[in-house]
């Protein structure tokens, strides 16, 4: 692949305000301070074509080989092991996402044709992922090459095609991330990880699609597996965790019932009270009174 760099503002990128930089470089000599650790507000993707790169991403050490894809999220640091760019060939794509919140909420921007649900699932995967390097992902190289072809040749429909390929790239890496979970081999362990995620984000309005995407299964297969493993449907399992958290919070004196309801993911205190009473026979306030006699 040739050496080229498109940067925001150049003519080729005018139809693509979300692409901040797209380039490829064959690095033949070592220059000091050529890759010092820095963070941006962009999603940065690097694909290695040749050579061996020693990088520190988000405070973890990685050695990248040809075929590897590095994902650097907005706010994460990327730098060379010795602050320099090693010898080899690498392509990169920097994208300005409209939003990628720590909760996993992802809005790519108008250019993308991913649905809201799909974007949210991809966002969750990106945020929860702690392995920023996906190894041996040759398909990513093919997609990088396609983007380059579209931008160089500018044939009819190239803006649509380019954006489609970027979507495809996001889908590819999301799928690869879910495959790493290897949920078929060890569903209990996969489920344990999911359970931790649910607990950490209990106020999030979880959907089955999102949970299924997190463990890399289709919704039907996911629901079946959860049902046979836990005895509950995925949504009922979440309610189960919510109510057990509620029991604990209600036994603490200083949190009011509405705050508890919202904190554990019910959309109103009525919704919370109805669900709670159905199960326990007590309203949340009665339950609290029974358990804290002094109040």
């Amino acid at each position: 692949m040739n050496h080229f760099i498109f940067k925001k503002g150049c003519i080729e990128l005018l139809p693509f305000p979300h692409i901040v930089e797209f380039g490829s470089k064959k690095n033949t000599n070592i220059q000091f301070n050529s890759l010092k650790a820095s963070a941006t507000d962009l999603l940065r993707l690097y694909y290695v074509l040749d050579g061996k790169f020693e990088w520190i991403i988000d405070e973890q050490h990685f050695i990248l080989y040809p075929g590897d894809l590095a994902i650097i999220l907005p706010g994460q640091l990327l730098g060379g092991e010795k602050d320099l760019l090693d010898i080899g060939t690498v392509s990169w794509l920097f994208i300005q996402l409209k939003e990628l919140a720590l909760t996993g909420k992802l809005i790519p921007g108008k250019w993308s044709s991913l649905s809201d649900i799909e974007s949210r699932a991809i966002g969750k995967l990106l945020i929860l992922n702690n392995k920023p390097v996906l190894s041996k992902l040759k398909e990513a190289g093919v997609l990088f090459h396609q983007i380059q072809q579209e931008l160089f040749n500018q044939e009819i429909g190239y803006t649509t095609r380019t954006n489609q390929v970027i979507d495809e790239l996001l889908i590819l890496l999301a799928r690869q991330l879910t495959r790493q979970n290897d949920s078929r081999r060890d569903f209990p362990q996969t489920f344990m990880k999911l359970e931790n995620t649910l607990r950490e984000n209990l106020s999030h309005p979880w959907t089955v699609e999102e949970m299924a995407a997190l463990v890399g299964l289709g919704t039907t297969a996911f629901s079946e597996r959860v049902k046979s493993y836990t005895g509950f449907s995925p949504l009922n399992y979440v309610i189960n965790i919510r109510i057990s958290e509620a029991l604990k919070l209600l036994k603490q004196k200083d949190v009011n019932v509405t705050d508890i309801a919202l904190e554990i993911g019910f959309y109103s205190s009525q919704h919370f009270a109805t669900t709670f009473k159905k199960l326990t026979g007590y309203t949340p306030s009665e339950f609290r009174k029974k358990n804290i006699p002094n109040k």
Binding site: G231, F232, N240, I243, S244, E245, L247, K248, L279, T280
Partner: peptide, 13 residues
């Protein structure tokens, strides 16, 4: 294990 979760799970089931 969380005793509250065991209790709620038992009740639910």
């Amino acid at each position: 294990q969380d005793p509250e979760q065991i209790f709620i799970t038992m009740l639910y089931v």
